[in-house]
């Protein structure tokens, strides 16, 4: 088996709070293959975004490894990391906040190339900006406009163009469509999938929208309170969810049909337990209807139950 593009090994990110350590990302082991999309789903506050940012070292992980083609990038020094950043980019959730309001569209797109000095010639830079704008479907007449003059979809296209500017291999997409309305969501998603076909990017697609993740991902990781509870291919996960949390999550997808209007839903009881100094054992145990006394035993690593279907639950051994 060839080395995967990105691999996290026991990645942890704890935030220090006055009450104790907040376990935002706790012992996550994931793999992103070349040209594939890993969807990361989970409810708000389960550490999806922190995971994405830790992989890019926008947040310094507490411990663990991030392997890029087998090399641990957390050990890189400043200079090597600067080089490294060309290979990994991020698309942000809110296209209203992720673009500098004082810069024009062309400046925003050109900025990464100026910083990394991949293109120094002025004319060449302008051409590259035009080309990128074409690629993401932004009309050339917007070069001098400022982000606030454009709508959400166009702004997000700028965000995509900026991420593409350095021709990265791996892009973290941090809920790139959740701030957009549905028709624009589809446009941006299709644009991203087309770009993937064309350039062979690998995506890590962070979202809480299950229909989006089903559409775009080849593999899905389900997160709950900083931990990865289930990893499987999209088809497998949607047809055969194993972890009780995943089952509840998928059960919550509304079905747009009159036939199901009286359908009973299993609603998860209780609140998300605090991520500050969590108890050992399964973190979902307090809300799980299958919970047993063994659930508090500390063993909670992912186990391969079916081929390429990993789950961390004592129900499956």
């Amino acid at each position: 088996m060839s080395t995967p593009l990105i691999q996290t090994v026991g990645l942890k990110k704890y935030f220090k709070t006055p009450k104790g350590d907040l376990h935002a990302v706790d012992d996550v082991n994931l793999t992103v293959e070349r040209g594939k999309t890993l969807g990361v789903v989970g409810e708000s506050g389960c550490g999806k975004s922190t995971l994405g940012r830790s992989i890019l070292r926008l947040l310094e992980p507490t411990s663990g490894q991030v392997l890029y083609k087998g090399e641990d990038i957390l050990k890189y020094d400043k200079l090597k990391m600067h080089e490294m950043r060309k290979n990994m980019q991020i698309i942000f959730q809110d296209p209203y906040a992720s673009l500098n309001p004082r810069m024009t569209v062309s400046e925003i797109i050109a900025e990464p190339m100026r910083v990394c000095k991949t293109i120094t010639d002025k004319k060449e830079l302008d051409d590259k900006v035009n080309e990128l704008m074409n690629t993401v479907g932004l009309a050339n007449r917007f070069v001098n406009t400022y982000p606030h003059e454009l709508d959400g979809g166009r702004r997000q296209r700028i965000g995509v163009a900026r991420a593409l500017a350095l021709e990265p291999e791996f892009i973290v997409c941090d809920e790139p469509v959740s701030a957009l309305d549905v028709s624009i969501q589809a446009q941006i998603l299709n644009l991203m999938m087309d770009l993937q076909d064309e350039h062979g990017f690998s995506y890590m697609f962070i979202t809480h929208d299950l229909s989006v993740v089903k559409h775009i991902s080849t593999e899905i990781a389900v997160m709950y309170l900083g931990q990865c509870v289930e990893v499987a291919s999209t088809k497998e996960l949607f047809s055969n969810p194993l972890h009780p949390y995943t089952q509840a999550l998928l059960d919550a997808i509304p079905i747009p049909s009159l036939k199901y209007r009286n359908k009973k839903r299993t609603v998860i009881k209780g609140e998300v337990t605090s991520p500050i100094n969590p108890k050992p054992g399964c973190r979902f145990a307090s809300r799980c209807k299958y919970a047993k006394s063994e659930c508090v035993s500390p063993d909670r690593s992912l186990k391969e139950v079916n081929a390429n279907h990993f789950v961390s639950c004592i129900l499956y051994k």
Binding site: L58, Q89, S98, L99, A165
Partner: peptide, 9 residues
């Protein structure tokens, strides 16, 4: 956007 700037080094 500050974070985006940091992301490209």
């Amino acid at each position: 956007y500050i974070e985006a700037a940091r992301a490209c080094g």
